[in-house]
């Protein structure tokens, strides 16, 4: 019943639609303006130059690695935040979400003082022969730092809206916590986890400030696509625009293909039975 009403009711006031159109234009217009500045005859040579391909390859590799780290650390964090009950939970959530609102350059400085050569952990790592600064590892750390909250927010939202009824039932039937997690909880929130992972990947792909501050900029090692764009802009505006477009296309493809956004209430097989899992706070 509810679902029918939701999908057939289209009584959006015209003025709301008008403002929405302005909002959409605000995002689309700059992108269209950039499109108008692309040097099309040179576009393919520009984006297939050696430096561009090196930067793109590095960006895709590091963003994939960061996404893996985000899932590895983000899933437990989201579970603890959604299901756990302990003092200081709100504080923990605030800190985990902090990179969402921090300027990336601040994140870079903080990482520097933690993992840098003179940093809190960096000194010990240096003694152990592990060097992080100026390596690809530094890029991955910077990206994970800024992208982790996206996964945590998405997944925590999914966990909350899924509720814990099925888990409680599974537990009363004798399932151990790990079994409940593996067989009930995770399958239930898989769409939320997937969209969180995609968002993290996209955020990692766009990371700039923390990388610049913490990792440096060397072709093939630390110079990701955003850093390459920033540098090319100094001398070759055409190359910068072409690479920007490339990054936009990659981001649109990644997000468009996998991120479906909040599922409409009651849609989809399993979701229909458990309410609205996979609901992601936008």
């Amino acid at each position: 019943m509810k679902r029918r009403r939701d999908t057939t009711y289209t009584g959006i006031p015209r003025w709301v639609a008008a403002i929405a159109a302005v909002g959409a234009l605000f995002v689309l217009l700059p992108l269209a303006a950039m499109l108008g500045r692309v040097n099309w005859p040179q576009f393919i040579p520009l984006i297939t130059s050696e430096s561009s391909l090196t930067a793109l390859g590095l960006s895709l590799r590091t963003a994939a690695a960061s996404t893996v780290l985000c899932v590895l650390f983000g899933v437990p964090l989201a579970l603890v935040l959604a299901r756990g009950d302990f003092p200081g939970k709100r504080l923990l959530r605030s800190f985990v979400l902090l990179p969402l609102v921090l300027p990336p350059v601040v994140g870079g400085i903080a990482l520097l003082y933690a993992f840098g050569r003179q940093g809190l952990l960096g000194q010990g790592l240096e003694v152990a022969g592990l060097r992080i600064a100026f390596t690809t590892t530094a890029v991955i750390l910077a990206q994970t730092f800024v992208a982790l909250p996206f996964l945590v927010v998405s997944l925590e939202g999914a966990l909350r809206s899924a509720g814990s009824r099925y888990e409680a039932v599974a537990a009363t039937l004798g399932a151990r916590p790990t079994t409940v997690l593996r067989r009930v909880t995770l399958p239930l929130v898989l769409p939320g986890l997937a969209s969180g992972a995609v968002l993290s990947f996209a955020r990692s792909l766009g990371e700039f400030g923390a990388t610049l501050t913490f990792a440096g900029s060397l072709p093939g090692v630390t110079r990701t696509l955003p850093l390459e764009i920033y540098l090319q802009r100094e001398t070759d505006a055409d190359a910068a625009v072409a690479l920007s477009l490339l990054l936009v296309v990659v981001a649109v493809v990644v997000v468009g293909l996998s991120y479906r956004g909040p599922a409409p209430a009651g849609s989809g097989g399993r979701s229909a039975r458990v309410g609205t899992p996979g609901r992601v706070p936008a």
Binding site: L212, T213, A215, G216, S217, L218, P219, T222, R223, L227
Partner: peptide
């Protein structure tokens, strides 16, 4: 053989 080629002199100094 630099470990990093920065896009501004202030970034070099910072490192």
């Amino acid at each position: 053989m630099p470990v990093s080629e920065e896009s501004s002199v202030t970034d070099v100094l910072g490192k």
